[in-house]
């Protein structure tokens, strides 16, 4: 009942928060565009035959010398900017979401277990988390990437770039989930319903996932949104540094890195339009995250 009320209250607050509505609209729009990219996009940036060099470096539709077919212009290869961005956002979101899923499963699992068992297991997990926290996420991700380059044979490295990148991001983000899950589990452990479930002789995994987990979802949901933004930023940063994805399958970060080459020439759209997309996506996810935090933490209202 309380959960239901909270839900409706949240909805009520949502309708009355213009920033949250705009943010949600932007995020959903980009998300849908990314999901349906193969059907929406004019050309397939991975398929060399679908675009032509003759259409290269066309400005956006509102500038002189543009081709109305390409609303936001084309890059030096003649690729439609919108198509590149949609495919890029698709890749960014796939990597961000899968990294986040791995991080959440790993972090929540370890956090729940640490809070449930306490003692030595808790101490070990939390010390690892401390060390990990001391290393900034970007450094962890770069290190994992570097190690993968050293271990994997050169032949399969290109094929595994996406997997390595995802894993590197996941392993640098799990700590937030673990710490939040552990702290919330500690609070729940003292509640009577958990004590009753334990006393009835239910298996630890059942107590953790069926009884405790649903009651700590709120704060975890907040972490999930905030970390989605972090995951996307991290992927963009790594790709921008040239450590992430190869140039033939560009994510948003790669597109910005390619656009950097046009910083000094007049073709501003090749750099700034993907940048604008990335910032819009991350800003709206962050605004939604802030909004969710306010809902789940009424004290801050």
């Amino acid at each position: 009942m309380i959960a239901l009320l909270k839900k409706y209250e949240g909805l009520w607050l949502f309708v009355h928060s213009p920033a949250a509505i705009v943010a949600a609209m932007v995020a959903v729009l980009i998300f849908l565009g990314a999901v349906f990219a193969p059907w929406v996009a004019l050309v397939n940036p991975y398929d060399l035959s679908s675009f032509s060099l003759f259409d290269g470096l066309l400005p956006p539709a509102w500038q002189d010398g543009s081709n109305p077919k390409y609303l936001l212009g084309t890059d030096d290869q003649g690729r439609d900017m919108i198509s590149s961005i949609l495919y890029g956002a698709r890749l960014s979101l796939v990597i961000g979401l899968s990294a986040l899923t791995i991080a959440a499963i790993l972090g929540v699992g370890l956090g729940l277990a640490a809070g449930y068992y306490g003692g030595r297991f808790d101490a070990v997990v939390m010390r690892i988390a401390d060390v990990q926290l001391a290393l900034p996420a970007i450094l962890t991700a770069l290190l994992i990437d570097g190690i993968a380059r050293g271990i994997l044979p050169a032949a399969i490295q290109q094929d595994l770039r996406v997997a390595v990148l995802t894993l590197a991001i996941a392993l640098s983000l799990w700590v937030n989930f673990a710490r939040t899950a552990r702290a919330s589990t500690f609070v729940q452990m003292n509640k009577e319903y958990v004590q009753a479930a334990i006393m009835m002789g239910q298996r630890p995994t059942r107590v953790m996932f069926v009884h405790i987990l649903p009651n700590i979802l709120g704060p975890l949901l907040v972490i999930l949104t905030v970390d989605l933004a972090s995951a996307i930023l991290l992927e963009a940063t790594l790709s921008f540094l040239g450590i992430g994805l190869p140039a033939d399958s560009p994510s948003l970060g790669t597109l910005i890195r390619i656009g950097m080459q046009f910083l000094l020439s007049g073709e501003w759209w090749i750099l700034w339009i993907p940048t604008l997309f990335l910032v819009a996506l991350v800003v709206s996810i962050n605004i939604l995250g802030d909004f969710l935090r306010d809902i789940f933490n009424p004290r801050l209202r």
């Binding site: 933004a229 930023l233 963009a236 940063t237 921008f240 540094l241 910005i256 950097m260 910083l263 750099l271 940048t275 990335l278 910032v279 991350v282 800003v283 996810i285 962050n286 605004i287 802030d290």
Partner: peptide, 18 residues
């Protein structure tokens, strides 16, 4: 600041350069 936190460091750098 909310927007500032959301803009990746490298984009801030590119903007300043520009």
């Amino acid at each position: 600041t909310l927007v500032g936190v959301s803009i990746p460091t490298f984009v801030i750098g590119i903007m300043l350069i520009f």
